[in-house]
């Protein structure tokens, strides 16, 4: 899949360029079956698909947490396998799981992360202060992460992903299980980060979230990208009225469509 064919040639390499990516686990399960995907520099890109479609595997392969079986992944032109150092330096990952170390304080979590990415002490200190301020975590600075609420942990994870100032931010279901205020706060923050030039890859189950935030969306199902485009383009191509209906078509559950359910209800009256 490529968006560049329709656009004038872009001199900067894509934020993420995935070509024929296959991931087969030792159990024989093929989680990705030749996925190709391109996210332009500065783009806000959404990846939608049901559970087990291959979203997280694609993210793991792009961040070094899984080794691809075959295919190629380039982050701003750097091979994610052969040239992993430069590729990983450019990526910030906010995973689905709240995977922070219980023993560390909020400040240590951010500081160590900055250190893993080679940031000097002074730079780390400044960046930690900046992020604690942005995410309203200043008074939690010295709290152990295990004592934080779920919402607070989610903020720490996003702050950690941004600590080393990545050019590509990968958000794997960042708003799963958070309350409305925090969801809107996170939306606001990632939109701001995107407007400052950071490319974003977002996976989510909330279609409204993808519609609101992403300029382009790809549907993934059964380890394959089945379609991509803007929210309107996808709805039009599937011959339905909304992104949600396009999604339901894709997963073969169109009987769940709100429009469909509405019509049946009327017929019954």
């Amino acid at each position: 899949m490529s968006s560049s064919s329709a656009n004038p040639p872009d001199p900067s390499p894509p934020a993420l360029e995935i070509t024929d990516l296959v991931k087969r686990y030792p159990t024989g399960v093929e989680a990705l079956k030749g996925v190709s995907l391109e996210i332009a520099d500065g783009e806000f890109f959404g990846l939608l698909g049901p559970n087990g479609a291959g979203k997280s595997t694609l993210i793991h392969c792009s961040t070094g947490l899984a080794s691809p079986t075959s295919g190629e992944i380039r982050v701003f032109g750097h091979d994610a396998v052969g040239d992993y150092r430069q590729a990983r330096e450019a990526v910030g990952l906010a995973p689905q799981e709240l995977n922070i170390d219980w023993f560390l304080t909020v400040e240590e979590t951010l500081d160590f992360h900055g250190g893993y990415f080679g940031m000097g002490k002074k730079d780390r200190k400044e960046r930690v202060d900046e992020l604690l301020e942005s995410f309203s975590l200043v008074d939690k600075r010295n709290d152990r992460t295990r004592d934080l609420s779920g919402g607070m942990k989610r903020r720490v994870i996003l702050a950690r992903a941004l600590m080393h100032r990545p050019r590509l931010l990968i958000l794997d279901e960042p708003t799963a299980g958070v309350d409305v205020e925090l969801r809107l706060e996170l939306w606001h923050y990632v939109q701001q980060v995107n407007s400052e030039g950071t490319s974003i890859l977002l996976t989510t189950h909330y279609l409204e979230e993808a519609e609101q935030l992403c300029s382009r969306i790809a549907f993934i199902n059964g380890g394959e990208i089945v379609d991509h485009g803007s929210s309107d383009e996808l709805a039009e191509r599937f011959g339905v009225g909304s992104l949600e209906d396009a999604y339901l078509e894709l997963v073969g559950r169109k009987e769940l469509s709100r429009a469909h359910v509405g019509i049946e209800a009327e017929d019954g009256q």
């Binding site: 070094g64 430069q86 990983r88 990952l93 799981e97 995977n99 992360h113 990415f117």
Partner: peptide, 14 residues
């Protein structure tokens, strides 16, 4: 167990 090791594994550390 916590998944926290992913933070080191996804860093540029060799």
């Amino acid at each position: 167990f916590q998944g926290a090791i992913d933070d080191q594994l996804s860093s540029p550390a060799s």
